[in-house]
Design a binder for these strands. Structure first.
Lengths: 103, 103
DNA sequence: GACGTTGTACGATGATTGCCGTACCTTATC
DNA sequence: GATAAGGTACGGCAATCATCGTACAACGTC
């Protein structure tokens, strides 16, 4: 049976909301994920060293994605994550850098 | 009857936590309060135009104060609020400015 | 002293959050 | 086809959150 690839929805650049981004970044686990993404380009979910289970990880990635902090794309069985640096910089100049620098 | 002035506790500069600050800033009401504080120096709680009741306001000021974003001092019956610009800048350089600029 | 102003304290409530386990889907490999 | 790996979906749970109303405390002013 053929199944249509499930779409992964992301907010567009102009849909990004400051409070949602700040909220996404305010969790220590998510902050660690973002910091890891900042230093290494594209990584699957499993490559992050965080003290939570798989399902909790899925939850955190969803929060980050829906806030527009990261972008996810499917590749085989794994979901590759990237930081949306450009979009964040365009909407909230300097924010990501200051957070990463302080993390 | 003499009553001792209740102390208002604030975290010291080196006790500030990034996730607590980000969380404090991630609420629209609190963000509005912070933005207003950024443009006018010292203001009593009642001077903010936010769509919540007094008791909710007290709650938000407490969150901001305990995260170290603002400092409160008593003056008569009113509580005067100031932004802890210097402390925030020292611990999280550029963060406050980028948030305020995007708000 | 009575009253008005400013703000806190103390519940209460409904929504959201962070976390988990289990079940399942998809893809790749044997 | 069976198995393993990477993730998601769903449901549940305990904790936190944002909000409110009511009561009250501190200070000024009449």
């Amino acid at each position: 049976m053929t199944v249509v690839q499930q779409e992964i929805s992301h907010p567009t650049r102009d849909e990004l909301e400051l409070s949602a981004v700040l909220h996404a970044l305010s969790d220590p686990v998510r902050l660690k994920i973002v910091a890891a993404l900042a230093s290494e380009a594209e990584q699957p979910c499993a490559s992050f060293d965080v003290p939570v289970t798989k399902s909790t990880c899925t939850h955190h990635f969803k929060v980050l994605r829906e806030a527009g902090v990261i972008r996810q794309r499917q590749e085989g069985t794994s979901r590759l994550n990237t930081l949306r640096r450009d979009d964040l910089e365009a909407r909230f100049p300097g924010l990501l850098d200051s957070v990463l620098h302080s993390a």
